[in-house]
Every structure is written in structure tokens, then in C-alpha cells.
């Protein structure tokens, strides 16, 4: 499976590395035309305001929506989760509005409150080491969204059909099981497309 990582700003190389560890092929995506050549897209961590601005500037908004409507999976981590959300708390304008959820930015506080912890995730056998950096939280999800993990009662991993989102950074550890999970989503979607 060829998995693209949106390369406008943020932790692109780490995702490419995790995808390759998980047996996929990772590609940095700088232009919307490149979306045609990939089976799944990761929107990485970074600054959501910067990524959102550059996505609008370089015509990624409709292109990613079309990509997702075609059934190909999209995975947002941290800032990427913010970019996927239909609703954002606070002043920031929502971006792709693809996932039926309300997200709070910097929900744990500032950098000194950033942390790592072991996290149980549905579909992954043993706990995952999850790194939360100025992380967002999913405050509320629609009926069509499955909650895959919570931390202290708050939602931190969710899936809605071909869309996957995590508050934390699976790409910052050597544990690539969530990337394997996403590659499997891409493989199934490719099977359904035929």
C-alpha cells in the first residue's frame, strides 16, 4: 500500500518511517495532484493553523474531501485530528469538516503539561505508548463514530468508516501498530474498489 503523508508542515518524516516499518510505502505529499497515486493519506502533527492555511492556499481542501469520498482512508494525528473535525471549540474555523466530532485544541494545557502514557486502543492487543504534545481532545462524537480509546474518560482515538483520528503521536515511538491498522484500512478500501 502506498500511504501519503501531507507534507505542508509538521512531523512528516516520522510518519513515513512508521509506515515503512509497518510494511507500507510512505510518500510525502506536497501537491494535491499527488493524491491520485496513493491508497491512504495521513495528516500529521504540526500546527493546525499553519497546516490549515497552507491546505487552503494549495487547493487541498476539496481534493482531500473527494479523496475521502472515494472510500480511501484518511488518518489525522494531533493537528491532523483537528484538521479532520467538523466542529472546533474556540475561535479557530474548522478545516476539512469530515469527521462528525467536536474537538478542543490544546485541551491538556501548555507544553509543560504534555506527557506520554500507556493507552489501551480497541483493535490493538496490548497497550500503545502514546505521546501527547499540546494535544487536542475529542469532546463529543456523532452516532456514526466509534470511540477506540479514552484517557481519563476523554476520547483520544476515534474512527468513522474510512476516517481515523488520534490526539497523540503514534509516529514518535517505534511501535507502528496503529500504522499497521491504518494500512489494513487502506488495503480493505482498495479491495472494495476492486
Amino acid at each position: 500500500m502506498r500511504i501519503g503523508v501531507l507534507a505542508l508542515q509538521g512531523a512528516v518524516a516520522e510518519h513515513v518511517r512508521s509506515i515503512e516499518l509497518a510494511g507500507g510505502e510512505g510518500v510525502a505529499i506536497k501537491r494535491a495532484e499527488q493524491l491520485a497515486d496513493i491508497d491512504g493519506l495521513i495528516i500529521p502533527g504540526g500546527e493546525s493553523t499553519t497546516i490549515g492555511k497552507l491546505m487552503r492556499k494549495y487547493d487541498f481542501m476539496d481534493a482531500i474531501r473527494t479523496f475521502s469520498e472515494s472510500g480511501k482512508p484518511v488518518f489525522g494525528t494531533c493537528a491532523g485530528l483537528i484538521v479532520l473535525a467538523e466542529r472546533l471549540e474556540g475561535a479557530e474555523e474548522p478545516h476539512l469538516r469530515l469527521m462528525n466530532m467536536t474537538v478542543a485544541r490544546n485541551a491538556f494545557g501548555r507544553q509543560r503539561e504534555s506527557f506520554e502514557t500507556d493507552l489501551d486502543v480497541t483493535g490493538i492487543e496490548t497497550p500503545l505508548r502514546a505521546v501527547f504534545i499540546r494535544a487536542p481532545l475529542i469532546k463529543e462524537v456523532g452516532e456514526n463514530v466509534d470511540v477506540l480509546s479514552t484517557y481519563k474518560g476523554e476520547i483520544v482515538t476515534a474512527r468513522q468508516g474510512n476516517l481515523l483520528a488520534s490526539s497523540y503521536h503514534p509516529e514518535l515511538t517505534d511501535d507502528y501498530r496503529l500504522h499497521s491498522y491504518f494500512i489494513e484500512m487502506a488495503r480493505q478500501a482498495a479491495g472494495e474498489r476492486g
Partner: peptide
């Protein structure tokens, strides 16, 4: 305040 959390914060600034 682990080194992964601190270095990771800088990783998120990349390309910026």
C-alpha cells in the same frame, strides 16, 4: 517532561 515529549514538541515545528 520526558525527552520524547520535549523533542517531539520540536518535531511538530518542522517545516515551519
Amino acid at each position: 517532561g520526558t525527552s520524547r515529549v520535549k523533542r517531539g514538541m520540536a518535531e511538530m515545528q518542522k517545516g515551519g
